[in-house]
Design a protein around this nucleic acid. Structure first.
Length: 862
RNA sequence: GCUCCCGUAGCCCAAUCGGCAGAGGCAGCCGACUUAAAAUCGGCCGAGUCUGGGUUCGAGUCCCAGCGGGAGCACCA
């Protein structure tokens, strides 16, 4: 078959109106024709200040320029475009921009591999993607393109960094960080997946380094609590993942005195009620606290600790996160004193306690915590039950029943025997003043006691850690800080921004654990105004900084006086509809939310959440699994576009199923989509009525169907049921076909009305075909810039409906009735039915439910 | 292990408030066109909704339990 053409037999009568126009659906011709028109018309530019239409900001997650666009991009941009085009048809002024997230490791790694400049490699890829994107026909405003690797963009990245620095939200600290052994750079917690580097899948180890952090933990409560306002507009899955990630725990801080040490050690616990059951303390071996506690110990203890620490640090994240492995640890030879009962308990170091969570130390209550129990059993430490989990609790009050007393079996099983810690509700015991209280009451009471004694307080802690933003790589935004020899940090003046990346020429980009920029002597060495020498910070920023505010830069991408114009933000932001993959459910979205809240606090924006609504599209699979080279199941987008046309591929993406579901390309039919487009397109060549024709008088059944679609379309599109909209369009095209072939014919006004509505709605999915159809229908310009009519309510009323009559839930008869029939009339009709009488037989009718005009159900005594 | 989501025709998927299980597509079959085939056009066939209970006049839809699939979290004190 000839590429680019869906052949069909020419019907002589269909040529009458457009003798000169081609009468074959040739998508290549249509694409080329309309691409040129769009370049000329700029139908999607959003730059007219006099535009008074209401506004919508529809944003697709911008792509990373690694190679050409693939099927995943195709799906995302097809779906985002449906939403953008829909709001335009509804009369909105829609901002729908596109850009490139063009800094980052893959570009640099690829550049190293090929021995080329990362800059050249990146911009070559952008150009390729830009052309593919244009061909793909998404309704972007091409005058607002940005690239995060442009100095004009990253200048404002640096500005943002300095704003955070001024607020104390950007700081440097030495700590154990995730180190990717392959990429030779640090990773944020969020970038470590199952102990491996999210990007290259290599093993991650811990390394102690001084790094830059953003203090996202200051915003933990707001990031968590504000998720409530996104409920219903964001996928619940994403909200759950974010909640989980922030991981707020509520409990208490408890101060323990350490014998022979002036300072107390504070531990965080979610179970302060079990404080009387604490039989030892555990600190993280890699914490400063452990090192300090062991410093005064005897040589044997020190030696054991040193050996243990070395072993811990050697282990990879994968080993460390294996929850099934045996507990390990060493005693530190120190004694802690329980503040509530004065009990002396030993202090151990063990790697099941994490240095950077809570205070890096825990009170171990082995009877009621599984981890502590395993440790106690392994090292033969005492276990004391302080909550009787066999005592039921009604409300907050423990209840002991006479039966229980009689059974003499009040105590729960011994955790040491069963190996199971007693985690449940119960009644406090062995706990002095807490005895007899329920768990929740005991928590309240013990916090009061601790606060009175000054040895503890209610506390919250989070799983979320501060955001590590420095990277020891070349292709990123330089951190705008100077370091003097005496260790001072000097922020670069705002007027001196951007701190431009030096050329990569002459730099060794091979990863070696330190930033390549440190070797750019001309760049890194600077002299301060007072004559002292300083060095630029050689690290670059995590690219998630770039993408945490790009949606604001789109508002005025060429403004060189500010990052974004707050007045424009007032007009357009926050983003009304954000569209992208669920892969960014945590990282990108959390960071963007954080930065938005910071900008709110700084007074730059008036909203606290960046994305009012979120749509996650699924992945495109092939034969049940993700496409990959190793599986050899890659479907090339460019080949699909060559074979079936842009519109057919886009339509297939929308029609395949709910947007959030994965699409298996083996299950769908782009050829079927092309067939449908050709059918619809062909009809526009058969219509013989003129654009000015009066609708009324047209075929009533077809008109009703058209208006039902008009009435349903908004709800369907806004509910992201794109697949249903496409199905309804197919249905309507089938109906038009019938009306032409075996009904009133191609000249009927209802045919024109129907195909015009099809054309408008089809433009959401198949913009090239729709614009060509629009022209064939006798109009000029792009159908995408028209608006959609409202349904005529008089046409939505059915002339008659089918009422069904059930007997005991089974359908026994049906009638054609007026939609306005009342309950009594319908019941009389139903009771008069022979079929119903036969079904009822001689049984007694006990109930008749009437739901006029659609249903009667007669229940009989059985 | 914990949490969440999903199981409807051979396949992908629809089904407003609980009210006739089917909108659409793919595949299949039949017919038209063709010397023939492909393509195209027209038509047809096709589940009783994963299983077992429950609520209800009535359950794909609500509740409980199980099975199957997917996702997230997982030594976070």
């Amino acid at each position: 078959m000839a590429r680019g053409t869906v052949r069909h037999l020419t019907n002589e009568s269909s040529v009458t109106q457009h003798d000169d126009a081609p009468n074959e659906y040739d998508f290549t011709r249509i694409q080329e024709k309309w691409q040129a028109r769009w370049d000329e018309l700029r139908p999607f530019a959003t730059d007219n200040p006099a535009d008074t239409r209401p506004r919508k900001y529809v944003l697709d997650m911008f792509p990373y320029p690694s190679g050409d666009l693939h099927m995943g991009h195709a799906e995302a941009y097809a779906l985002g475009d449906v939403v953008a085009r829909y709001w335009r048809l509804q009369g909105f002024n829609v901002l729908h921009p596109i850009g490139w997230d063009s800094f980052g490791l893959p570009a640099e790694n690829a550049a190293i591999k090929r021995g080329v400049d990362p800059r050249a490699w990146t911009y070559d890829n952008i150009e390729q993607q830009r052309q593919s994107m244009k061909r793909y026909g998404a309704s972007f405003d091409w005058d607002r393109v940005l690239h995060t690797s442009d100095p004009e963009y990253y200048k404002w990245n640096q500005w943002l960094f300095l704003k955070l620095y001024e607020k104390g939200l950007a700081y440097r600290k030495a700590s154990w960080v995730n180190w990717c052994t392959h990429d030779q750079t640090v990773l944020a917690n969020e970038q470590v997946v199952d102990g491996r580097c999210e990007r290259c899948d290599n093993v991650v180890v811990k390394k102690k380094l001084t790094q830059w952090y953003f203090k996202i933990t200051d915003y933990a409560d707001r990031l968590l609590d504000d998720l409530n306002q996104l409920e219903g507009s964001w996928p619940s899955k994403v909200i759950a993942m974010q909640r989980n990630w922030i991981g707020r725990s509520v409990g208490a801080d408890v101060d323990f005195v350490i014998e022979g040490r002036a300072e107390r050690v504070t531990v965080f616990t979610t179970r302060p009620d079990t404080l009387f059951g604490a039989t030892f303390m555990v600190v993280a071996p890699d914490s400063d606290l452990a090192a300090e506690l062991v410093a005064d110990a005897d040589d044997e203890t020190k030696k054991n600790f040193a050996a243990y620490l070395e072993q811990v640090q050697k282990s990879t994240e994968i080993e460390r996160q294996d929850a099934t492995r045996e507990k390990t640890g060493v005693p530190l030879g120190r004694v802690a004193i329980n503040p509530v009962n004065g009990e002396r308990i030993p202090v151990w170091a063990a790697d099941y306690v994490l240095a950077d969570y809570g205070h890096g130390a825990v009170m171990a209550v082995p009877a009621h915590d599984q981890r502590d129990l395993e440790f106690a059993i392994k090292f033969d430490l005492p276990v004391r039950v302080v909550v009787d989990t066999n005592a039921p609790v009604t409300g907050a009050i423990p209840v002991i029943t006479p039966e229980m007393l009689e059974a003499g079996d009040l105590l729960p099983p011994d955790p040491v025997q069963t190996g199971e810690a007693l985690a449940g509700e119960g009644r406090l015991m062995n706990s002095g003043p807490l005895d007899g209280l329920s768990k929740s009451n005991a928590i309240k009471r013990v916090i009061e006691l601790l606060e009175e004694a000054g040895t503890g307080r209610a506390a919250k802690t989070y799983r979320l850690r501060d955001w590590l933003i420095s990277r020891q790589r070349y292709w990123g935004t330089p951190i705008p800080i100077l370091h003097t020899e005496d260790g001072r940090e000097i922020p670069v003046e705002e007027s001196a921004l951007p701190v431009e990346l030096p050329p990569s020429e002459g730099l060794d980009l091979q990863p070696k654990g330190a930033s390549p920029l440190g070797a750019a002597e001309d760049w890194v060495n600077v002299t301060l105004p007072d004559g002292t020498a300083a060095r630029r910070d050689p690290d670059t920023m995590d690219t998630f900084v770039d993408s945490s505010w790009y949606f604001l830069r789109f508002l005025n991408p060429n403004d060189d006086t500010q990052a974004f114009d707050p007045k424009e933000a007032e007009k357009w932001a926050p983003v009304d509809q954000y569209v992208g993959g669920v892969t960014h459910a945590i990282l990108h979205l959390l960071y963007a939310r954080f930065i938005t809240k910071v900008l709110f606090d700084l007074g730059y924006v008036s909203f606290t959440e960046p994305f009012s609504a979120l749509l996650n599209q699924g992945m495109v699979l092939m034969n049940g699994s993700a496409m990959s080279k190793s599986r050899g199941n890659i479907v090339r987008l460019s080949e699909q576009l060559d074979e079936h046309g842009v519109d057919a591929v886009r339509l297939t993406m929308a029609f395949a199923g709910p947007p959030e579901d994965d699409i298996d390309w083996a299950d769908v039919s782009p050829a079927g989509s092309a067939k449908f487009l050709a059918r619809a397109w062909r009809i526009t060549g058969e219509v013989t009525s003129s654009p000015e024709v009066e609708w009324k008088g047209g075929d009533a059944a077809l008109r009703r169907q058209t208006h039902r679609l008009l009435a349903d379309a908004p709800g369907l599109v806004e509910g992201f049921k794109f697949n249903v909209v496409v199905a309804r369009l197919m249905e309507l095209v089938n109906a038009i076909r019938k009306t032409i072939d075996s009904g009133p014919g191609a000249g009927d006004p209802a045919v024109r009305e129907a195909i015009e509505i099809v054309t408008k709605l089809l433009s959401l999915f198949a913009p090239y075909t729709a614009d060509d159809m629009w022209e064939r229908l006798g109009y000029e310009g792009s159908v995408a810039t028209t608006t959609l009519r409202k349904a005529d309510p008089t046409l939505l009323v059915e002339e008659s409906v089918t009422a069904i009559v059930q007997v005991d839930g089974k359908v026994r008869d049906r009638f054609e009735v007026a939609p306005t029939i009342d309950t009594g009339a319908l019941e009389i009709l139903a009771r008069g039915s022979d079929a119903v009488a036969r079904a009822v037989g001689d049984r007694e009718i006990v109930n008749v439910i009437v739901r006029a005009p659609k249903l009667v159900n007669i229940a009989t005594k059985r």
